[in-house]
Design a protein around this nucleic acid. Structure first.
Lengths: 335, 335
DNA sequence: TCGGGTTACTGAAACGATTCATTCCTCAAC
DNA sequence: GTTGAGGAATGAATCGTTTCAGTAACCCGA
């Protein structure tokens, strides 16, 4: 049933070593022999068994990537960038979705460890991660994605979320808004905390500006809708005059809730700005202002660092790459 | 460096066979021994090497899934359903994105074949797929996703796209529209062809109704925008009075283009309906009418069939599951 | 005391590709 | 004719887990 190198070797009247050489170093084999082996492979329908290769090699040719939410286009863009870079070196991306859940995150890391992946890219939930340390101890490079490494012990590729938060709220200030609501959570997610911190700084820099925090359980459209409904239910005088949502998914939800029955006009009564600038943002009921991040470049760069670290090992100087976010103004803030 | 069962066995003063039994059939081992082995595992930080397991087992515990577009929320929902069902049996989903490109599709299938995956779930581009046949010949079950198997040789889980297309256009007819434009392509994608076929039937059933086809290169927001711009550029009298887009991504693009500079009002001048009912549809500039499909159920069911076929082998009667689509009316068709 | 059954554990063989020390040839140079 | 260099091919050993035939120890009833 299963065709192995041995069968191919027999069919081509060569040794298994030669078959392996044809597969991996064809230039070391005489052209006529290469041809004969290739013919045998085609005839028998031989396909390499990756498990056997990996076992011998000691590690796989896959890179594990754990994201917070696959349904967030930002992360699929990151994944795409990662895949592109990985493909350049004949590698594959294994995509895991933690759904902002520590257990799921953990089980993906366990899985990746059993698979002896070439390296791990992770957008981690929390800070302390013994599992990451264990991976590293095993010699598996770990690169943090969309998050700057707290200590310098990991390479990381991130966007400055504090600056992004500041950019968003300063823009709201410049367009005359003063009573800001920040919608986002849980604050244990670093991106959320940083964006809020940036918002706080911008608020502090603007006399008379106030900031209210509406905490959510996760960064989804549904949670955004709930937050938006809470705002809509308030008496007009008690509503904020601008909402800064921790990501575009939340912002879309907020927008849906505010617009429902046309009760609250955006941006007239409440301005709204999101974060990530996903494709759908510009197609929203009211096109959404947002903070743009170079998503696929983040993924690309992360794999790049990972492969360098994998190659050079311990001597590789870990790097913290930080990209700068960019304000995109659209109708939802009166652009 | 690498800790193996042999090291664990030595540390716990048992044989490798016993360690394996502790790992796989703990009830066959005396409790005291189990404890000793577990302690050794913890102390040494042993983690199973999946490649070795797979090699021995002959196949992996992963299921390959190839989708047309990861950025389409419909497919991420399918993937999520698949993942849930796979997890119930301790299996993993490997997600591949063909991007509607035959080469990419092929290289994922090759990859999955080298990995000796447990089975393959695929939303295929075209009809003839020698690679699928080869996988099947190897005994790897293949289940078609979001596509009914032409012959009965594959199991499949699909939604009746002809009915869906009919539903969409009949709804347009009932709301008084007559000059329909179908936006979608390439027609080599079965879903596109079927939805168009359904549209044709509804048109044929309605006196005085006409159908125009605006072919696109792919099913993306960008392509939709291009189609929408083409419509916007026409003299009002030559515009269709309704657009049926082959999926929501296209529809969002069309919508963006029509609304640009407020040139064409939706639904007053042109009604618009999409397909898939992705989360973002309800949050669009004008909330989008659409045809809903049970995405995550599709994924769940597909893995279910796949596992059954993997277990029972040849004697398993292949099944073609077909779900029925559902019309969701929103503002873009005057709902 | 002996056979028969059960339970607990052992350790060699197997999975399939890759590696590398070794052998075999051929040809050129002296 | 001998030597040496280098290209081509060989095949046993290896990676780490699981499986399974077999051993050992023990209990029970006759």
């Amino acid at each position: 049933m299963a065709v192995s190198v041995r069968d191919v070797a027999a069919a081509a009247s060569v040794s298994v070593g030669t078959v392996s050489n044809v597969l991996n170093r064809p230039d070391k084999v005489a052209p006529a022999t290469v041809e004969r082996v290739i013919a045998a492979i085609a005839e028998l329908g031989f396909v390499r068994n990756d498990a056997a290769r990996q076992l011998r090699a000691g590690r796989s040719r896959s890179i594990g990537l754990v994201v917070l939410d696959v349904r967030n286009p930002f992360f699929t863009d990151v994944a795409r960038g990662a895949e592109d870079r990985a493909a350049e070196d004949g590698m594959t991306i294994l995509l895991g979705n933690s759904d902002e859940n520590a257990d799921r995150e953990g089980s993906y890391l366990d899985l990746f460890e059993e698979q002896r992946v070439h390296g791990v890219l992770i957008s981690p939930l929390a800070d302390d991660l013994p599992r990451l340390a264990r991976l590293r101890a095993r010699g598996t490079p770990v690169v943090l994605v969309d998050r700057e490494a707290a200590d310098r012990s990991y390479s990381s590729v991130a966007v400055d979320d504090v600056v992004g938060g500041e950019l968003a709220v300063r823009h709201l200030a410049e367009t005359g808004r003063r009573r800001i609501a920040f919608v986002g959570g849980p604050s244990s997610i670093r991106q959320v905390a940083d964006r809020l911190e940036g918002a706080r700084r911008a608020v502090a820099a603007t006399p008379g500006m106030t900031l209210e925090v509406i905490e959510t359980d996760s960064l989804t459209v549904l949670q955004g809708r709930a937050a938006g409904e809470a705002i809509r239910e308030r008496r007009p005088a008690e509503r904020p005059d601008a909402v800064f949502a921790a990501n575009d998914l939340l912002a879309m939800g907020v927008l849906q809730a505010l617009m429902m029955q046309g009760s609250v006009r955006v941006p007239d009564e409440v301005a709204l700005i999101g974060y990530d600038d996903i494709d759908f943002a510009s197609a929203a009921v009211v096109p959404l202002s947002s903070i743009r991040q170079p998503a696929s470049l983040i993924g690309y760069t992360a794999v790049d660092l990972l492969l360098k670290e994998a190659e050079r090992g311990e001597e590789f100087e870990r790097q913290q790459v930080v990209f700068q976010p960019e304000l995109v103004v659209r109708a939802s803030t009166g652009g």
